[in-house]
Design a binder for these strands. Structure first.
Length: 1025
RNA sequence: GGGCGAAUAGCUCAGUUGGUUAGAGCGCCUGCUUUACACGCAGGAUGUCGGGGGUUCGAGUCCCUCUUCGCCCACCA
């Protein structure tokens, strides 16, 4: 029950996947799964198809075996050389963190991608889905640091080299499990290209990008206030410092005027009572930062403080003297209209400080400890030095209370930035960091959107994307952690030469030959992620065949949360380094939530483990449930406490497919059937015609819901196409409706007598049934790949369906072709030409269905006849139900010319209907006969849409009141609709202004309704007399 | 504070440029173990399309407004 070992080359490329992981989580139920595989009668045979289908479908008996078969056959692999002949269709998987384990969010994200890639693969594209993991700098470092804590150590105790070694080892041992888990849900990625953001290949891309941007003048080192996580010990980008609403306190503190400056200022401007000493009141939520205050700012136009500008105040607690300055930044309306300025600990204050040449003393260190860090002599009293920032806050408030400086405390709800990795309150901190100038990059990304090269679905995110890019700020890319790509900058130890930015490691100073040392910082993990769409294809090697064949890609599927972190930046990187956006479509799917609409999360304990669902109901049930509920941009609601109900629709649907197949195998036989193309159109029955027409409609609906797969002109979306496609729930519903409500409920039922009868007509029914189910399996395969593949291998199909198979899709089953797969950088080396081909074909590579009978008028006629039969059948069943008659009880049904009388008889209609009598009788167990005039009998009545009347004599059983009631109800609702239609047609403005076609159709409808209405009325009268 | 979205059957949602008597799944009610399927089959009920106003021959669909709920962004100390 374990998957084949991952390709050894992948392992090294990944630096992560060491051992083959069990298909299922190694928990208690794993043993059970293993037992199944060995003991159950239908283990691996199911996939190859040589035993009868068991009565009950057990997903776990087929899924892992089948997955291995696909993978060994190279079904998921894409080849650069084939992309010349086929259209390439490329997606890159959002790389999960290397330490991640699968949760339902990954499940949804990857299922969506898998549906798309399988659809395109079947449609004949050279479909490439690039998988991989992200080294996830801070997150992974945190995991290993926590492990060290259990040993009572910090990373500083073990040292940088030993620590990173430890992380590497950890990643090698347990990293990348999630990729194996993705196989359990059926993800058909090209695992031979599994990438890793910290692999040598991708690290080369990172250096290239850094150096190139530096050459372009877009990377610089800046000295400014950045977001700092004291727990993680690193700076963060704006996006990594998330706002969370928190209820804090706003403290009003009195800064008194320096005695020498009091002069003739009798009272303070903000103190009408004169109760306070002359000075200014400031308000702050972070009193601890006052130790680093270098000024108090007022608005230049604020009359209250005019006289104080240029004077000095005495800072409480440390008694330092600071100036009152005038700056536009101050909002006179807020608080007292005066704001304390702490240049080193607030980004805005830093800007104010620069304008006024203020010093920027640092009074809180990297760990959030208050002390005199830099330029801060005499600022931190000994009693405060060494305290944590929050302890120091309390202490300072005590001191302020004691000397009367704390005037007021009010509660204050505000947003505070927290570290997105550990949720610690972020500390603004003055430091040297590397930045990327984003405006030039953003300009190109905006251009790509405006020219239509890029679209985002759902549409509403486009405005968010544009808004963010237009207001973009420079990106802090340096991190003071150890796990990540070291910044490729070296400094000379001996001379003053400028820093050396280099693609290659630098050993000696190019100017003086002296020793050098590399920058200590590493790069933001997203600095490698944003290159993912091309670094995984061989960039910066511009001649890489993969890069040439597969860039740019097509669709990016992800959650809206990382639109800024990742998606926008990938577009910027793609436009900058590759001159083209990396994909033409961004598909942002919803979130999986619980019944209370809360996001599923580990901390809330409301999550669903996708592997639990796989074990219980199978991957297909999981996939079906998620996809069929996935409206565009809509969240998926599932109940973690009731998996049975949550996944019922998926499980039930799989069972239905299974049972249809069992029917086919017993009633149609396991032998192949006649190809449809060899069946003379004359031998199609009305039912055949109808189901073939429905198949065409289902194919059209699926195509519309899913596509178009790419812009029609190859590079930019038209306004018309921009909003189309990726309606996954509509696609799933269209396919489901066809196979269940149309094929199984109607066609299959109607064909039972024909199959039992055998003969030529039986063969036609077998051919049509097999053809339609074959097509249905194809349509469904992207959503429920395992069961459809299993069934497709076993159910009867046309003897020659080469015409229906994708050409040259037979794939190699020779393991040797794959065990030598090379790393992603040169994976194209294993050419298709060298692969041995076998006759085995998979549904996974079979051709996506296309419409065949669109313009066939005999099909249309037949379909109409069958629809009439359906009407009769439903009427008879309705009567049976209404009169509580056993389904099998004998029943006579008369078809009369209708209440309109003999004059209105339409022999053609009647003849058409008469051809359907056998079908109707078989499906209702009624005996039908045609009569001329409507006989007067105690009977149930139905007026058919073709004008004929259905009379079901029930003698003593008939309830005239019931009959009259039913007629009255129908008359009532029809009369209402008819009246509204008539008044619309009577309105000259409507007939004049509405499209002629519509008016025509409405007139025809009005006539039809009118006839039916009078028919119903006459009927009612006859029953009343 | 700014921007965006949503409100349709008990629940989750479709409803594509305004034009069938507004649909699906799940749930609910009734009947049925008919040799593919009770994880099923057949039949059935259920909506002043959030409130109000407007445009139009015609509005679930477009506009305004109100209410409720979400999401994104933002330096108000």
């Amino acid at each position: 029950m374990t998957l084949a070992a991952p390709d050894p080359e992948n392992v090294s490329a990944m630096g992560a996947m060491a051992e083959p992981q069990p298909m299922h989580q190694p928990e208690n139920s794993n043993e059970h799964s293993n037992e199944n595989a060995h003991d159950n009668a239908h283990g691996s045979d199911l996939a190859t198809g040589s035993v009868e289908l068991p009565a009950v479908y057990i997903a776990s008996d087929i899924e892992s075996t089948l997955y291995a078969e696909w993978e060994n056959a190279g079904v998921f692999r894409a080849h650069a050389e084939d992309a010349a002949e086929r259209e390439p269709f490329v997606m890159v998987m959002p790389p999960p963190n290397v330490t991640a384990i699968l949760h339902v969010g990954h499940g949804l994200n990857n299922t969506v991608q898998d549906v798309l890639i399988r659809w395109r693969r079947m449609s004949g594209d050279e479909a490439l889905w690039v998988p991989g993991t992200d080294h996830a700098g801070i997150a992974t470092q945190n995991v290993v640091e926590k492990m060290l804590v259990t040993e009572g150590k910090t990373r500083f105790d073990v040292g940088r080299a030993a620590f990173t070694g430890r992380v590497e080892k950890f990643v090698e041992e347990t990293g990348g499990q999630i990729l194996e888990q993705l196989k359990a849900i059926g993800a058909s990625a090209d695992w031979s290209r599994t990438a890793y953001t910290f692999s040598p290949q991708l690290s080369r891309a990172v250096r290239e990008a850094f150096v190139r941007l530096h050459e372009d003048g877009l990377i610089y080192k800046g000295h400014r206030v950045i977001h700092w996580c004291p727990r993680c010990g690193t700076s963060l980008s704006d996006e990594e410092a998330e706002f969370h609403e928190s209820s804090g306190k706003l403290y009003h503190i009195r800064y008194t005027l320096d005695e020498n400056d009091v002069g003739n200022l009798a009272t303070a401007p903000d103190d009408a009572d004169g109760a306070l000493p002359p000075g200014i009141t400031v308000a702050t939520t972070r009193p601890e930062t006052m130790l680093g205050d270098t000024a108090v700012a007022v608005h230049p136009g604020d009359k209250r403080y005019q006289a104080l500008i240029g004077k000095h105040l005495i800072l409480p607690v440390n008694g330092l003297r600071i100036p009152v300055i005038a700056d536009e930044y101050t909002d006179p309306e807020f608080g007292s209209g005066a704001v304390k300025i702490t240049p080193a600990h607030d980004a805005n204050d830093f800007e104010v400080g620069k304008r006024h040449n203020l010093p920027a003393p640092v009074v809180i260190d990297a760990e959030g400890i208050v002390r005199e860090v830099e330029d801060a002599n005499g600022r931190v009293p000994a009693s405060l030095s060494g305290l944590d920032r929050f302890r120091a806050r309390e202490q300072i408030l005590e001191m302020l209370r004691a000397d009367g400086s704390l005037l007021r405390t009010e509660s204050h709800s505000h947003n505070v930035r927290h570290c997105y990795r550990c949720n610690t309150v972020v500390e603004p901190r003055l430091s040297d960091q590397w930045f990327v100038s984003m405006k030039p990059l953003a300009a190109r990304a905006l251009e790509a959107f405006r020219t239509g090269e890029l679209r985002i679905l759902p549409e509403r995110w486009e405005a968010v994307y544009v808004n963010w890019l237009e207001g973009i700020r420079d990106w802090n890319i340096s991190r003071q952690i150890w796990w990540g790509h070291r910044i490729p900058v070296w400094y000379c130890d001996e001379c003053d030469s400028p820093p050396i930015v280099s693609r290659e490691d630098v050993q000696a100073c190019p100017s003086c030959g002296g020793g050098v040392h590399q920058d200590e910082d590493v790069l933001d993990t997203w600095f490698s992620s944003w290159l993912w769409p091309f670094s995984t294809l061989g960039w910066p090697d511009e001649d890489s065949p993969d890069l040439k064949a597969f860039y740019p890609g097509d669709v990016l599927v992800t959650a809206p949360e990382i639109l800024f972190f990742w998606v926008s930046r990938m577009v910027m990187a793609g436009c900058w380094f590759m001159d083209k956006p990396p994909f033409h479509t961004v598909y942002l799917h919803g979130t999986v939530r619980d019944v209370q609409h809360r996001k599923m999360s580990k901390s809330l304990g409301n999550g669903i483990d996708p592997l639990d669902v796989v074990r219980l109901f199978g991957a297909d049930a999981l996939r079906w449930t998620m996809i069929s509920g996935l409206g565009l941009g809509v969240d998926v609601m599932l109940d973690p406490d009731d998996l049975d109900t949550s996944f019922a629709s998926g499980r039930n649907f799989c069972t239905k497919l299974w049972n249809i197949s069992r029917f086919l195998l017993t009633r149609v036989g396991a032998e192949n059937v006649l190809p449809l193309s060899t069946v003379s159109p004359d031998s199609f029955t009305a039912a055949d015609a109808w189901i073939l027409a429905r198949l065409d409609a289902a194919i059209a609906d699926c195509d519309t819901a899913l596509g178009p797969p790419r812009p029609a002109n190859g590079h930019a979306w038209t306004d018309e196409d921009r909003r189309r496609g990726l309606r996954l729930s509509e696609y799933a519903e269209s396919a489901r409706r066809f196979v269940w409500n149309e094929l199984a409920d109607w066609y299959l039922e109607s064909s039972k007598p024909r199959l039992a009868q055998g003969g030529a007509d039986g063969d036609v029914a077998r051919a049509v049934l097999a053809h339609c189910f074959d097509a249905a399996l194809r349509l469904l395969h992207p959503v429920v790949p395992f069961i459809t593949e299993t069934l497709w291998q076993r159910v009867p199909r046309a003897t020659s369906n080469e015409d229906y198979n994708r050409s040259s899709t037979t794939v190699s089953t020779s393991p040797s072709a794959f065990s030598t797969a090379s790393s992603s950088a040169s994976s194209t080396a294993s050419s298709t030409a060298t692969e041995s081909r076998t006759k085995k074909s998979f549904l996974a590579t079979a051709r996506w269905p296309s419409k065949q009978f669109e313009s066939d008028s005999s099909i249309k006629r037949g379909a109409a006849a069958f629809e009439l039969a359906q009407e009769v059948i439903q009427a008879i069943r309705h009567t049976r139900s209404e009169y509580n008659l056993k389904p099998g009880a004998p029943m006579d049904v008369l078809v009369a010319s209708g209440s309109a009388g003999a004059a209105a008889r339409n022999p053609e209609n009647e003849a058409l209907l008469a051809t359907q009598f056998p079908t109707i009788e078989a499906m209702t167990r009624a005996r039908l006969s045609m009569v001329g005039n409507t006989p007067t009998l105690l009977a149930a009545h139905h007026l058919l849409s073709n004008g004929n009347e259905l009379i079901i004599p029930l003698a003593h059983l008939v309830d005239l009141d019931k009959e009259r009631g039913r007629l009255s109800t129908e008359i009532e609702s029809l009369a209402k609709a008819h009246a509204s239609l008539e008044s619309r047609l009577a309105n000259e403005k409507f007939t004049a202004r509405a499209p002629a076609e519509l008016v025509e159709a409405e007139r025809a409808k009005a006539t039809e309704w009118g006839e039916r209405l009078s028919g119903l009325k006459r009927k009612l009268e006859s029953l009343s007399s």
